[in-house]
Design a binder for these strands. Structure first.
Lengths: 208, 208, 208, 208
DNA sequence: GGGTAAGCGAGACGGTACGTCAAGTCTTCTG
DNA sequence: CAGAAGACTTGACGTACCGTCTCGCTTACCC
């Protein structure tokens, strides 16, 4: 889990030697806060997540939180870190069906099972209440993820498995949309059969 | 916009216009609150929506709100009323392509353009933070809507336009999922071309 | 102990029936706060007196304090109430020496022994740090007290015990100044002998 | 302005002008702090005087202040320095009336006009909130000043202008008390006429 | 048509968390 | 090794809403 939002402020993440002086913020405090947010989100839910609660749990002063994160949401955006890249970077098996099957199953599992998925769901909830946050969520996390989501298709096009004129954006929406819809809206589970089905129908349509 | 959640408490919806009597609540106050919520949600957004703000805007005492609605979310669930049924009941043209095209376009427009759509998006956001509310949103609104979403397909099956063994649930997810995904997650617009495309590919796949 | 500063807001001190409604503030909360301030000032001293501490001790919400008193000092000014009038209104014995002796002794005892005297000393300390508060302390309490301090002399003039052209202001300064000086500056005790001495010398000078 | 409280810690007051070295504290930093306190007290008043403000104004690190002064009040006690001795050492004219007139007028002017007088008033205010500080103010400054205040009278006794059995303490209280009372309590000005009057009445009582 | 009881507006109340400020401590590097 | 810089914990500040309460007014219905 690395920092994206505020890496500019903290030039030397590497060394991480300092704690409470002019030469950089306390890496220890930073980690404690992100961990606390992670835990509390799972334990009490977003609605009951307070800055004071985070500070207490992290064993950190409220002021330290406000010094580095402008708001509760910034902590979440920070805490999400590189989780998306880590969990949702599609592997390459040299075969579109395998690639897609694995990736869609990974997305489904990430969203429904993992703590990081819970974080993303919570952030999506906030984004639905505040367009500014929606914008940040997209530029800081979702845009890159969308790029990753396109990857299996792009590679298949390179291999000649898919036609070159395929609309990748549209294809991604058709493949991932139903999964997100189930998770975010209807609350239905997303079993392996569901994602396999999506892949099968997609391939039937586009592979010739 | 009619009441569902609390219609049982209010026997005399009809001609009432009192402010203080012993036989039933004030229809005027009820309407003022629902209207105020509607307006404020659009004006200030969900994040800045407070009970006190609603009370002030509605010209109503806070206590009156608490008397009839247990929480802010209940007001929203109430305010959403029959909007879904009104905006999103699919018409019957006797032709699946037309039915689906019209319905999907209606869903897209409802979600992105209407005030009621904003309310649904806000409620979806809350639902992502609170599973109890998610449950209520589903039983009070989404379940019925899903029934309506299935309607065009069911009718097509009756007419023999679609095979009888078609998995309706799955089909609905594939048709609506991408639309909700764009609206709730990526924030991309949902142009007519997008929904037409969904319909075209769906029909190509399932119509024989 | 009656209210002076905010009596305008609370028209019906008499009945004191209400608690938490539009027809007036809670007399109970008001008394609890003033009592708490009284107690805490003695227990912890002015330096350690916090609004939060007062609220906790009074069993009152912080907001209730802020609703009625703009600042900590206002509570003190309010808590001082009519204590000055009660403790320091000079009696009339028909004899200047007796009147003065009794009054000066009362002043000395009030300042050094009573809780209300501690309050006045604390307020004087604040006044030395803030001229606006100094002004309020004077207009709300000290001006009236000075009038009372002049009273024995004025009566003596009426009785012909003192010359009519006596400068009352100056006389009061000479009689009370040394007492306040000891209490506020040097911290020496103010025994009966000291005040008697002041009276004796004053009379020797001015009585003919 | 010399150091009393912490002179023991600083062996080389003389030629020092370093900023960060191993040979004792920086005289420059010390002076900067005392000057800053002096200025800020006049500019913003005691109530708004903060350690951080002093540090910023003095161009000194907060830690440097804490290293040498245990608290804000210590800085003030230090900043007051020898001002009392410098401004309020009574001159000797060989005549009691002249000596007293001059001294009382000097006291009045010092208290009401000078920056050092403002400092003393501020310290008196703090002393009224904290008996420990009151004690320090007295032992570090007021005791010596009281000695100086007694001086004109003591000399007059020597010269035979005043009776030998005169109670000096009481006399000082009667002469200075009214002045301090006006300055600290009533806020009235202390014109020359007022101090002259005090002297005249005192002499009328005790001389011959 | 007069009495009565519920709904109403108003708003004070005890709370919780907010985001800010300064206090006093600690750690690092510079001169 | 003192000093500048500044991050740290702590705790109080004053504010905003929460959800509860009490009050007195205004009705609709009932006797």
């Amino acid at each position: 889990m690395t920092d994206q939002a505020s890496s500019d402020i903290r030039p030397d993440t590497a060394g991480a030697r300092h704690s409470g002086n002019r030469y950089g913020r306390s890496e220890q405090a930073r980690r404690a806060v992100l961990t606390a947010v992670d835990d509390l989100l799972v334990e009490v839910g977003f609605a009951a997540l307070t800055i004071e609660g985070i500070a207490t749990r992290a064993g950190v002063a409220k002021q330290t939180i406000y010094r580095w994160w402008p708001s509760k949401v910034d902590i979440l955006l920070d805490a999400l870190g590189d989780d998306l890249a880590e969990h949702l970077t599609p592997a390459e098996h040299g075969d579109l069906e395998q690639d897609l099957s694995a990736h869609l199953a990974a997305v489904a599992e990430f969203l429904t099972e993992s703590d990081a998925g819970a974080m993303l769901r919570a952030l999506t909830g906030v984004a639905l209440h505040d367009t500014a946050i929606a914008e940040r969520l997209r530029t800081e996390h979702l845009a890159r993820q969308r790029e990753r989501d396109r990857l299996p298709l792009r590679r298949a096009v390179s291999r000649g498995e898919l036609p070159a004129q395929l609309d990748l954006d549209s294809a991604v929406d058709q493949l991932l949309g139903p999964i997100y819809y189930r998770v975010l809206v209807t609350g239905q589970p997303v079993p392996r059969a569901f994602t396999e089905d999506l892949v099968r129908e997609f391939l039937a349509r586009h592979r010739d």
